[in-house]
Simulated assay, not measured.
Amino acid sequence: MPQQDNLSDSNSTGSDPSVFFLTGIPGLESLHLWISIPFSSVFTVALLGNCTLLYVIKTEPSLHKPMFYFLTMLAVIDLVLSTATVPKILSIFWFNSREISLNGCLVQMFFLHSFSIMQTALLLAMAFDRYVAICDPLRYATILTNSVIAKIGLAALARAVLLVLPLPFVLRRLPYCRSHIISHCYCEHMAVVNLACADTRFNNIYGIIVAFFIVGLDLMFISLSYVKILRAVLSLASKEEKLKAFSTCVAHLWAILVAYTPVVLSSIIYRFGHPVPPHVHILLANFYLLFPPMMNPIVYGVKTKQIRDRVLLLLTGTKDAGLGSNK
């Protein structure tokens, strides 16, 4: 079989050290064609949803506000995360195209991890946006100016690049004299590190520090923002005011839940779920990449009246009740 020939060639002593082979989902190779159906469907919805979101925000003047600028950045991140990984995954499922060069692998890994870090930064920025809107609404326009939003976006980009950039250079210098088979659908950092036949303590420690630094600090500040938001909401006089104020946070809370839940579950399973089959780990890792880009535009489209009205206007020529309020 071509699959077996490719994999055996990658293990031979004369194999090209700059070429690696992705396995897809180990143990489920016979089901790759069927698995590709939900993968391609989710990918298509993610592309259409995020592109529609970007178009709506760009063309609708009433959406040129801080919250929607942050949402634009999140949509771009979702598109990059999807397009950096899913096309190669589908080529494995459809054409058994498992080969990937070392340079291509490192580039994919860089985009995957750097934009994942940017995603958490944007979720933190959106939590800050909701905090200012609810806790200090009179100063909202003066605090979140266009220049401040641009600086936040650049800071998120710089932090991600600076934290991830050392990894490809370190991995590029490591010898890979063992198997060149990456037991994954894409070039995840630790999946590549495990193939090196050298001391990889730096990669292991650095990866743990970055993950703890990013997830730990960002989640801590997001939680702090929502503690203050909750206090402000509970101090409002009427029930209607409380519901209206908190409803503006629902879409963002869902985005946080969708982004962080697979990460936490994957971490727990990786450390404590040793009897769990490898394909469960990999399916969960793919879920983390595919599900948020698909769900974010849907949730924001459903929960945000301005976006919902504009999409309905594009699709049917009608709208709910104007483009003036945020539900």
Rank of each mutant, 00 (worst) to 15 (best):
I256P: 05
L154W: 06
L253D: 06
T316E: 02
V192W: 02
A156S: 11
E60D: 14
I117V: 11
V170S: 07
L323Y: 10
S62W: 05
V107F: 05
V45M: 08
V302F: 12
I256F: 13
I208M: 14
P262N: 03
F95E: 09
F272T: 08
K319Y: 15
K228Y: 10
H279K: 09
G104N: 04
I298T: 06
L167V: 15
S62N: 11
C135Q: 05
H180W: 03
R159Y: 12
L90K: 02
F202D: 08
S82E: 11
P166W: 01
K303N: 11
F272M: 05
P168A: 04
P61R: 10
A160F: 03
L138H: 11
C177Q: 12
V264A: 14
P277C: 00
P277W: 05
S101D: 02
L7E: 11
V215S: 08
C51I: 12
V302G: 00
T85K: 03
G322C: 09
L71K: 08
A237G: 12
D136F: 09
N204C: 07
Y69H: 14
L163P: 00
S97N: 10
N194D: 14
I181Q: 05
T13A: 14
P38Y: 00
I35W: 03
Q3R: 14
L90F: 01
L236G: 07
L289W: 03
F128Y: 14
H32K: 08
F246T: 09
A251R: 07
V299I: 15
G207L: 03
A285N: 10
T85L: 13
N6V: 07
L315Q: 02
N194R: 09
D136E: 13
M67H: 10
F202W: 15
P87I: 00
L102E: 04
V192L: 15
S62M: 13
P38Q: 02
L257S: 14
R310Y: 07
L224Q: 13
K58G: 07
C105R: 02
P61S: 09
H252G: 09
I222Y: 06
F246D: 00
Y300H: 15
H252F: 13
M294G: 01
V56P: 06
Y260S: 09
A156T: 04
C185Q: 06
Y131F: 15
I181Y: 05
F68A: 13
V42H: 01
